[in-house]
Simulated scan of single mutants.
Amino acid sequence: MLTLMEQARHYQPKAVDFPGGQVDEEMQVQLECVDEEVIRKRLLQSLPIPGLMQWLADHYGHYQDITLLRLYHKLIRMPNITATPDQDETRITLKQVVIRLHSHTLESL
């Protein structure tokens, strides 16, 4: 339904054609199968961890950057640990990106 302003200006919406499902192969990210339970168990055995992202890069650096970032955000929310962000910014180089963050220190409750 057109608004009064659109009616006054004789507005006609235009159809926009998008590429028909063509996606550049480089833009596709293949999701990796990760055994998160094994990673959680190893993490709990390694506590305390002074910098989670560095720990992930050291132990699981063979995974894609996006996988490490996803794991990072899942692991800091584990119910049986305390995750405290560091006051100082850390710079970590992964495979394709360099990230700056206030990495979390993990400790058991």
Rank of each mutant, 00 (worst) to 15 (best):
A83H: 04
I66G: 01
T67M: 03
M27H: 11
T82V: 10
Y72N: 00
D58N: 09
I49E: 01
A83K: 03
V16G: 01
V16Q: 12
D58Y: 07
V98R: 15
S46E: 15
Y72L: 05
W55V: 01
R70E: 14
E26D: 15
A57V: 09
E37P: 01
Y63M: 04
Q12M: 10
Y72P: 00
G51A: 14
V98P: 02
V34A: 04
L44D: 06
L109A: 12
V34Y: 04
E6H: 05
A15W: 09
R100C: 13
P50I: 05
E6S: 05
P13H: 01
M27D: 12
H62F: 10
Q45F: 08
Y60M: 03
T67G: 03
D24W: 11
R42N: 12
Y11D: 07
K14F: 02
V29A: 10
Q54N: 15
G20Q: 10
P13D: 02
I92S: 05
D58I: 04
L47K: 10
R9Y: 10
M27Q: 13
V38C: 06
L68S: 00
D35H: 14
D58F: 08
Q22W: 09
L2N: 07
K95S: 09
S108K: 15
T67K: 01
P48I: 06
T67P: 00
E37T: 08
M1Y: 07
L101V: 13
L44G: 04
L47V: 10
Y11T: 02
P50C: 07
E25S: 08
K74D: 13
A15D: 05
I81D: 00
D88C: 13
M1C: 07
P19N: 08
R70A: 03
L43H: 11
P13T: 02
E25K: 10
A8G: 03
E32G: 04
L31T: 06
L75D: 00
Y72E: 01
P48G: 13
H104K: 01
V97D: 08
P85S: 14
S103F: 05
S46T: 11
E107F: 08
T90D: 14
Q30D: 02
S46Y: 07
M53N: 00
Q45H: 15
Q45V: 07
I92Q: 08
K14Q: 12
Y60V: 06
Y72G: 00
M1H: 11
M1F: 12
E36K: 08
T82F: 12
I92Y: 11
R9V: 05
V97N: 06
A57L: 10
A83V: 05
D58S: 11
D17C: 08
G20N: 13
E107G: 03
Y63D: 01
L75G: 00
P19K: 04
I39A: 04
L47Y: 14
M1E: 12
D86S: 15
R77F: 06
C33W: 07
P50D: 12
D86R: 15
L94G: 07
F18E: 06
E37R: 09
D88W: 14
E37H: 12
Q45M: 11
D86V: 07
G20F: 11
H59S: 15
P48D: 09
L106E: 01
M5K: 14
L106S: 03
T3C: 14
L109T: 08
E107I: 07
L101W: 06
K74W: 11
I66D: 03
V16N: 05
I76L: 09
